[in-house]
């Protein structure tokens, strides 16, 4: 799946780029060879591991919240000056033990916090209530107020699982954007690819792509229509990127494999 490019200068640019791509990690890593590093089975994405650890936390239950309308809440958040810049964690794995102790049928949902915040531009949509405690933070995580379902001391408060589903599905419906089916957000039970993937000892990048496409042909077709292929630089909606020059894969940068 090599994207067609005109012969001449871009081809040379490709060679240079590839040399750079291969050289940089090898230099950065020091002693181990580049391909050794790529195949390190113990390597884990640090942000994923960080999110996994955070998902395990259970915070104290918030008994009372301020009773106010959504507009009041919106305006107050604006007055306080809270916005995307204040986001401390941009990525979450929704895998709370509160839900898992009852039901555990799906893998965790990966939630892009900053991406949603940037698209909605209104914290009050999800952070719809503040704790009554004056000392508490203005916005708290979902699981601070929503924990076990059907609590007899708070029968009107929905549980965490329902809070996620109602919030996500309702908004995805009204915005006509984002998945509303189960496997749209939850990963399916993925089989172990160790046995399935067959690669030569020292695979070239295009060998890997070809091996993926052997089973995921339609995913390859879809990929050609996504921003991963047609990327034209940072979105104008991304904070502080409004004035950046567009030069993504869809324009000057080259998709190599």
């Amino acid at each position: 799946m090599i994207k067609a490019f005109p012969p001449g200068a871009p081809a040379r640019l490709l060679v240079v780029l590839m040399v750079l791509i291969w050289a940089v990690p090898a230099l950065a890593a020091g002693t181990p060879e580049a391909d050794e590093l790529a195949l390190d089975p113990n390597w884990k994405a640090p942000d994923q591991e960080d999110a996994r650890e955070r998902a395990k936390e259970v915070v104290p239950f918030i008994e009372a919240v301020v009773d106010e309308c959504q507009l009041c809440r919106q305006q107050r958040l604006r007055d306080v000056g809270l916005g995307i810049k204040d986001i401390t964690h941009s990525y979450f794995l929704l895998e709370s033990p509160i839900i898992k102790q009852r039901e555990n049928h799906y893998g965790p949902v990966r939630f892009m916090h900053t991406k949603h915040a940037a698209a909605i531009q209104d914290c009050a949509v999800c952070h719809h209530a503040r704790p009554a405690d004056k000392a508490a933070k203005e916005t708290v995580r979902c699981s601070a107020c929503h924990q076990e379902s059907f609590r007899s001391d708070h029968p009107e408060r929905i549980g965490l699982k329902a809070a996620y589903h109602q919030q996500c599905i309702d908004c995805h419906r009204t915005e006509a954007k984002g998945p509303v089916d189960c496997v749209g957000c939850h990963p399916k039970n993925v089989p172990d690819h160790k046995e399935l993937v067959k690669l030569p000892a020292n695979p070239a990048p295009w060998d890997v792509t070809a091996e993926c496409l052997r089973c995921h042909a339609s995913a390859g077709e879809d990929m050609l229509a996504t921003s991963h292929w047609l990327w034209r630089g940072h979105s104008a909606y991304t904070l502080d990127r409004q004035k950046h020059v567009m030069h993504g894969k869809g324009t000057t940068a080259i998709n190599n494999f």
């Binding site: 009852r102 379902s149 059907f150 007899s152 029968p155 589903h165 109602q166």
Partner: peptide, 25 residues
């Protein structure tokens, strides 16, 4: 303990509890 259906319902369309409480809810 919860009924199987109420436990799995993703949106809490089924709320389980004492009948009196549910009427209030």
């Amino acid at each position: 303990g919860l009924p199987g259906c109420a436990e799995i319902c993703p949106t809490e369309a089924i709320t389980f509890g004492r009948r009196k409480t549910l009427l209030e809810v």
